[in-house]
Amino acid sequence: MNDLISYGDGVHAIDSGYGRPRLAAIHVIVQDGRAAIIDTASNGSVPRILGALAALGIAPEAVDWVILTHIHLDHAGGAGSLMCALPQARLLVHPRGLRHMIDPTRLWEATCAVYGPEQAFTLYGQLVPVPAERIVPATDGLEVLLGSRMLRIFDTPGHARHHICIWDSVARAFFTGDTFGLSYREFDTDGRAFVVPTTTPTQFDPEGMHLSIDRMLAMQPQAMYLTHYSRVTDVERLGADLHRLVDTMVAVAEAARGDGVARHVEILAGLEQIMREEAARQNWALGEDDTLELLRMDLELNAQGLGVWLDNRKPAAPTGA
């Protein structure tokens, strides 16, 4: 099937169909006839996942793990529906996200606050709860087996406090969700990939992101598998770019004046200028206008996240004598 890419080492990527082609990948790891699925995208992605499993010769009963890097709905919105189709699978999710998989009410309310109810439903459909007895807390350092293959959980805050990355001992690679940024294939130049941080609302933490990036780089990975969009190599270079761009985006936010809409507009304009300069610096394949159009929603969410970060770090107002 055209939506399936096989990289070797038992690692495969499915185009989730979320938003547009090559926006969000779902990864499947196959070992000894068993499978793990990392991130699920939305409810609309479930038929693609089941079709990919069939193409790989994996029965639904042979899926042992569904692992969520975090519970933002472009990564986890289809988890409940998918678990209904995988009778033997257990769900691995950060302890902070566990209760939201059991009862997704507050998760849905938070999503509606960002997108509005109609757009949220269009994007994600109806969220399905996961029975508590099928969920395993993905604590830092936890190791789980997929056949003879070891997968290790790394607690990686920065994009969100409930974010994990998964170390694959066979591929010697991380599945990074959003912690290692996004890398759209449209920007590639002569096979050279580029990366952009994701500072989306509501839990962006630049210090945490820097630490998480360095913690992964210390494992000397051969590749990173990003949700947006899949495999990148040359990870030391990309990690250095991420560090630089996180600091540059934070500086833009700190320099913004005022608050509310005016501040948001100023931050967004600053992020757009960063991307213009980065496109020129790195010789991205897309022109300036096409670059900004492709990143339009990402930059809007990044600006929102930087605004929330600014507000959360303000000192509390005095309560009086």
Score class of each variant (00 low, 15 high):
198 T>M: 14
202 T>F: 09
203 Q>L: 04
169 S>Y: 14
206 P>F: 06
190 D>L: 07
177 G>M: 01
179 T>G: 07
190 D>S: 10
183 S>C: 11
220 Q>K: 15
168 D>K: 02
214 D>V: 13
191 G>Y: 12
208 G>I: 04
209 M>R: 12
201 P>S: 07
205 D>K: 14
219 M>P: 10
185 R>L: 12
216 M>Y: 11
169 S>A: 13
174 F>Y: 03
189 T>G: 11
178 D>C: 03
199 T>I: 11
217 L>Q: 07
185 R>I: 10
195 V>S: 05
208 G>T: 09
199 T>R: 05
221 P>C: 10
173 A>S: 04
219 M>G: 11
199 T>V: 09
170 V>W: 00
201 P>I: 04
213 I>Q: 00
195 V>G: 06
203 Q>P: 07
198 T>L: 14
178 D>E: 01
180 F>Y: 09
193 A>Y: 00
208 G>Y: 04
173 A>N: 04
201 P>M: 04
174 F>M: 01
207 E>V: 03
170 V>S: 01
200 T>F: 00
194 F>M: 14
173 A>W: 08
184 Y>N: 10
182 L>M: 08
210 H>P: 10
221 P>G: 09
205 D>W: 03
194 F>W: 13
216 M>V: 14
168 D>L: 03
183 S>E: 05
219 M>T: 13
209 M>I: 11
206 P>E: 07
220 Q>P: 10
202 T>W: 08
173 A>G: 04
216 M>Q: 13
215 R>C: 11
191 G>V: 12
213 I>L: 02
193 A>P: 05
195 V>T: 10
172 R>W: 05
172 R>F: 03
174 F>H: 01
199 T>S: 04
169 S>K: 08
208 G>C: 08
218 A>P: 02
206 P>V: 13
201 P>K: 09
177 G>F: 00
198 T>G: 08
189 T>D: 11
177 G>N: 01
188 D>P: 05
220 Q>L: 14
203 Q>M: 04
197 P>A: 02
214 D>G: 15
191 G>E: 14
183 S>D: 05
174 F>R: 01
210 H>M: 14
218 A>L: 09
186 E>F: 09
214 D>K: 07
209 M>Y: 02
174 F>L: 01
213 I>K: 01
211 L>T: 06
173 A>E: 02
182 L>F: 03
221 P>R: 15
180 F>K: 08
199 T>W: 02
168 D>F: 00
169 S>I: 07
194 F>E: 14
193 A>R: 11
181 G>K: 08
208 G>R: 14
168 D>Q: 01
215 R>L: 12
189 T>Y: 09
211 L>M: 12
179 T>Q: 09
207 E>C: 03
204 F>K: 09
168 D>R: 01
179 T>I: 15
214 D>P: 14
195 V>M: 06
206 P>W: 07
217 L>R: 12
221 P>H: 13
171 A>C: 06
186 E>D: 09
192 R>V: 15
189 T>S: 13
200 T>N: 03
210 H>Y: 12
173 A>K: 06
169 S>M: 05
185 R>M: 13
218 A>C: 05
205 D>A: 11
177 G>I: 00
195 V>E: 05
178 D>Q: 00
185 R>D: 15
221 P>W: 08
180 F>I: 15
187 F>H: 07
192 R>K: 12
186 E>Y: 12
179 T>P: 04
173 A>T: 04
182 L>C: 07
168 D>Y: 01
210 H>L: 15
221 P>L: 12
174 F>A: 02
178 D>V: 02
